[in-house]
Design a protein around this nucleic acid. Sequence first.
DNA 1: CCCCTTTTTGAGCGATCGCTCAATCCGGAC
DNA 2: GTCCGGATTGAGCGATCGCTCAAAAAGGGG
Lengths: 210, 210
Amino acid sequence: MSAATKDKLLEGALRTLVEQGIAKASARTIAATAGVGQGLIFYHFGSVDELLAAACRYGAEQRVDRYRDRLAALGSLAELVEFARAMHAEEREAGHVAMLGQLLAAGQTSPALAAATAAGLGLWIEELEEVLTRLLAATPLDGFADPAGLARATAASFVGIELYEAVDPQGAGSAFDALEQLAGLAAVLEGLGPLSQRAVRHGLRRGTRG
Amino acid sequence: MSAATKDKLLEGALRTLVEQGIAKASARTIAATAGVGQGLIFYHFGSVDELLAAACRYGAEQRVDRYRDRLAALGSLAELVEFARAMHAEEREAGHVAMLGQLLAAGQTSPALAAATAAGLGLWIEELEEVLTRLLAATPLDGFADPAGLARATAASFVGIELYEAVDPQGAGSAFDALEQLAGLAAVLEGLGPLSQRAVRHGLRRGTRG
DNA sequence: CCCCTTTTTGAGCGATCGCTCAATCCGGAC
DNA sequence: GTCCGGATTGAGCGATCGCTCAAAAAGGGG
């Protein structure tokens, strides 16, 4: 029964975090949500923090798995923008990124939680970064921008803004706006073709003075 | 003595948040840090949450004020990138953005805190957005990218990544990488000059298929 | 000096927290 | 059926939480 009980606790912890927030994610609440005695949390996970950290990892993998196939199938930045809109909507509904935002705070006082939160956010970034790097490599960015650097910055931007929007839905910008600008840029550079190569080198020689 | 005591409490709350984290920001701890009795928190602010929210606003204004003059004096995107590096380093040391990251979580269960956190983050974004819009307006971006949209997305990216890095200092990217890419792009477009106008329109007609 | 208001204190209330532990349950080996 | 060891339960401990409140202190006008 051990494995099944662990799963019950993970599901219960995840549901509690997403639906009621970390402030209500006490041993008693989680155990009640999972439908087991609270003592089991300490028997199986040692502490509430450890359970929350495990639930964080469990949840992040679960969410990213939902998208892995779709991400791999993307063939252009334009498709990525479209996909990002859908993912944004789905995640807002699922509330998982908001949950990570909450754990972000709690992690400041719990090493285990901090590590798990960073790992959870890292999963998202890695996945997006991989796709972005692949797609950017196919566009003529070379010469003025490093595709890998641009991909990393964009992926981190996306996750960062998702975090921000978890607090303020009416916030200053939306994550896929950044992706959209990137896609627009890519389209332009593709249109420029070989011209861009010379112009880029010219521009770079002039430095970044303006 | 009322005003002076309120200031003591605000400073004490801010110091407690930055140095010890929100988990330790209890009425007793804050009062001890401020050097007053804990009852004063409820006498002057009504509740701990209200005090924390006020301290959040107070801290955000204090930090942004530090940069306002320097931001207004910026004349190019390249200078902005340089400035962003400095601000990034200063803020990491001050720990204020990290503090906002912590409040982000607590805000999920306290409307007052949520509003104050959003307002605090909003201050940063507004300030950066204003400067970016001004600087981008001076570059030949027109035709393929909306300067205001690009500014908003970039400002939000910056703050979002700062938040993310508050959790994971070894994280996936740094905030000013995004700004640097933007500055590089601006330099290129400036170098292209009038050429870019035609090429851009050509690129846009082709859509975002690649 | 007294008197009244505003400000300040800290003990204490009820609630909740993470966690322990003695007791109980239960499935499988014999 | 007997027994045993892992799995499970929930009462309870000590600590901390936000907050209240009676009492003390401080300040200022008469």
